[in-house]
Nucleic acid binder design. Structure first.
Length: 237
DNA sequence: GCGACAG
DNA sequence: ATCTTGTCGC
């Protein structure tokens, strides 16, 4: 698929924040995706374990994966990976600058143009309202959303214990996401919109993508593929 | 000022 | 993210 070229890369956290502030106005927060997406892509990145720079520094090797699923059957339609290097140190709120180059490359290697992107992390529920899911949405022009495994910004009350139970996540007086229980009695996930999608729609997709496990099949597949791709790197060159 | 902090 | 042993549960 086609993906817009990356902007000039930030050298400092200040510059990275400026880029987020500059791109944020391009977000379309209306529910503009197809009523019934046919394909949904899951994205994830696996990092190489190493003591020197550590998985949190810059420069360590990594592998990104994009897995396209049939939204109806959840069967894999297409897969793509891309090897790369951590493009930025890990800084809460600037995760996108670490993973974007490799993720964009993986997406470009896809023949399919998915109807929705599901990212491992946050979208609007972000210090500056521009998490990874928003960034990828703007770069691709596709509807996008984030599903995170742990809390980041905002406050919330614990949702009920049953699958489908949810509660709003509020930050600076706004509802920026939703804590959603995807299976009875499991830790909830954190859903937030990225681009061209509404929170209700995003949660509906998150639930439909998780018929059996806590995490959506999209991120489970992408997680496995990225790890496999990384292992392939480590064992060869 | 001090902690917390997606992956 | 990644490092790690055992342990509880289906």
């Amino acid at each position: 698929m086609e993906v817009r070229d990356l902007h000039d890369w930030p050298a400092t956290a200040r510059e990275a924040e400026e880029i987020q502030d500059r791109l944020r106005p391009l977000l379309d927060l209306r529910d503009r995706g197809p009523l019934r997406p046919r394909t949904i892509a899951g994205l994830d990145v696996a990092y190489e374990r190493d003591g020197a720079r550590g998985p949190s520094g810059r420069g360590g090797r990594l592998a990104a994966a994009a897995v396209v699923l049939d939204a109806e059957t959840l069967e894999v339609v297409e897969e793509a990976t891309a090897a790369g290097t951590a493009a930025f140190p890990y800084v809460p709120g600037l995760l996108a600058f670490r993973e974007l180059p490799a993720l964009v490359e993986a997406l470009r290697r896809l023949e399919t143009t998915p109807d929705l992107l599901v990212c491992d992390g946050y979208g609007l529920a972000h210090p500056r309202r521009f998490g990874l899911a928003c960034h990828l949405g703007v770069l691709t022009g596709l509807p996008s959303m984030g599903v995170a495994k742990t809390p980041f910004v905002g406050a919330y009350d614990p949702p009920g214990e049953r699958r489908g139970d949810a509660a709003p996540v509020r930050h600076d007086g706004e509802v920026v996401g939703r804590v959603l229980r995807t299976q009875d009695g499991v830790k909830p996930v954190f859903v937030s919109v990225g681009h061209r999608i509404g929170l209700d729609t995003a949660c509906r997709h998150a639930l439909a993508l998780a018929p059996r496990y806590r995490l959506p099949e999209t991120t489970r597949r992408a997680d496995r593929l990225s790890r496999d791709a990384l292992a392939a790197l480590t064992s060869s060159a």
